[in-house]
Design a protein around this nucleic acid. Structure first.
Lengths: 130, 130
DNA sequence: GTCGTTGCAAAGCGTTTGCAGCCTA
DNA sequence: TAGGCTGCAAACGCTTTGCAACGAC
């Protein structure tokens, strides 16, 4: 039978408070504010367990370590800020993806990652330039 | 001064013959047909060197190891076959990406990965179903 | 008190680096 | 022949696993 530990609860809370996908390091450092000696192995184990419970799901990004977000998100994509490295959920899809696929190929899924500056970093950038 | 070794030449040839992005394992096993004792460290070193020469460039995929393709490809995206795991280059972009970005965000780049069945695997799949 | 969970340390795994010997120029 | 390159093995960084102690129920 599964137990409710401080560690797991702290990690769950971290996701709820963050409101955006988190990396392992983000989870570790945020959750440590609540459970001081929290070990990285415990984070990995609870991430796995929370995924099995379908509380969170993985977000695989090109050239980056996996991030984790509260599930179910429904179908959506992400925006990665090149300055603060934070990841944000975005909604909607391009409508003309199937025309990109060559003759004979069967399109089943698509991953889209938009990159640039988030709201916060866009503002800072504008302020600096003035 | 840089030397032309059998190993490096074999790797270069492997890319030319393949005509699609390759993983480290693909490069190692294909190039070994030409240079038997080829070591994995040599592959990594030559990949780096070929990248510096701008003969190849990395292709980062979500949840997969980096693949490598002949450069310059210009701006393009990829199609990953879920059956044979081969990666193909595709051309063109969706036209309405900027409408996906929330107010205040600055869109600079985008990565798109299409997934499904390549031509070969689509055909096999149809044949089997009949 | 039981036994699932934790933190530590060691093991895995893909990638990188150190080094002695090889081979290109 | 010099010294860049190779293959091997060890080192690395991130993730997973083994284990004794801890703590939820």
């Amino acid at each position: 039978m599964q137990r409710d530990t401080q560690q797991k609860e702290a990690i769950r809370l971290t996701f709820i408070r963050a409101g955006r996908p988190l990396s392992i390091d983000e989870i570790l450092s945020y959750a440590r504010r609540q459970v001081a000696g929290l070990g990285i192995a415990t984070v990995y184990r609870n991430i796995k367990s929370l995924q099995e419970e379908k509380f969170i799901q993985p977000v695989d990004l090109p050239g980056q370590t996996t991030r984790w977000e509260i599930a179910p998100g429904g179908h959506h994509h992400h925006f990665l800020c090149r300055t603060c490295d934070k990841l944000y959920e975005i909604h909607g899809c391009p409508e003309d993806l199937s025309r990109l696929v060559p003759e004979g190929y069967t399109l089943e899924e698509h991953d889209i990652l938009l990159r640039g500056l988030c709201k916060n970093c866009s503002r800072k950038n504008n302020t600096r330039e003035r």
